[in-house]
């Protein structure tokens, strides 16, 4: 980055000005030598960030392999939140998720995604790993969805813009002689305003493992998942 012009301004009285004139002149020459180095004029990171933060996600995924410094910029949390802010600031960009049953032998469900007003139906190849069969969806929050599938204890965070799915680790085991009741999770999902962590809160119903011991009310176990540690913590019991 270039030196600021104010560097050449001397805070002394006019009488001293001439004394410093020569030195100031030398500094100028030095700065000329420094700033006329050949090379890429757009090396300033700020400028690159400003330009890239205006591009759609698909472009950014490609731009990650332009060079190492671009890769570092695009994957940095600051850039990501700036990009998201730009995206939401544009009044004409809409993100709409449509959960649609695409009858394929009556079995498969698929999601149709409208991003940047461009409908993009996710291909079956990209859907391959996704929990599209009756998932519970929650979100979006800051561009991210929480997905939960009941029958296989499946939980994940999904970023539809880059089609990335992050599987959450399993919920910690219940204490001995207890199990979780076969209820659906009670869950919530949000972005922590301070830590910028995506957090998922899940409430699990505890009951006695042995049927004959069941009865009465057992506490609800509360777990909080945090994306920065990629782990669940036992928040407490209700």
């Amino acid at each position: 980055m270039a030196l600021s012009l104010s560097r050449y301004v001397w805070p002394y009285g006019q009488s001293l000005a001439s004394l410093f004139k020569e030195r100031s002149q030398k500094e100028r020459e030095m700065s000329i030598a420094m700033t006329t180095m050949p090379g890429n004029l757009l090396s300033t990171e700020d400028v690159v960030i400003e330009i890239l933060s205006r591009l759609p996600v698909k472009n950014l995924l490609r731009c990650k392999c332009v060079c190492k410094s671009w890769h570092a910029i695009i994957t940095s949390p600051n850039f990501i939140s700036k990009h998201l802010r730009n995206y939401y600031d544009k009044s004409d960009s809409d993100c709409l998720l449509v959960q649609n049953c695409v009858a394929q032998a009556g079995e498969l469900e698929s999601l149709e995604l409208l991003l940047d007003e461009t409908p993009r139906v996710l291909s079956y190849a990209s859907l391959h790993m996704m929990p599209f069969h009756s998932p519970f969806l929650c979100g979006p929050c800051d561009g991210i969805f929480y997905m939960y599938r009941y029958y296989s204890d499946f939980r994940a965070l999904w970023n539809p813009a880059i089609n990335e799915l992050r599987y959450l680790p399993p919920i910690p085991n219940p204490p001995s002689s207890f199990s979780y009741s076969p209820q659906y999770d009670a869950y919530g999902f949000g972005l922590h305003p301070v830590t910028k962590d995506y957090e998922v809160v899940v409430l699990k119903d505890l009951w006695r493992e042995k049927v004959e011991e069941r009865g009465g009310r057992y506490p609800l176990r509360v777990f909080v998942y945090s994306s920065s540690t990629d782990s669940w913590r036992h928040w407490g019991d209700l």
Partner: peptide
């Protein structure tokens, strides 16, 4: 910034590199 973003939007990696005169260091 917007004009440059518009010019590189939906272009290939190679195009973007030559647009900015960036050497691929991967």
């Amino acid at each position: 910034n917007q004009a440059v973003a518009d010019r590189i939007e939906n272009k290939s990696v190679e195009y973007v590199r030559s647009f900015f005169g960036i050497d691929n260091d991967f």
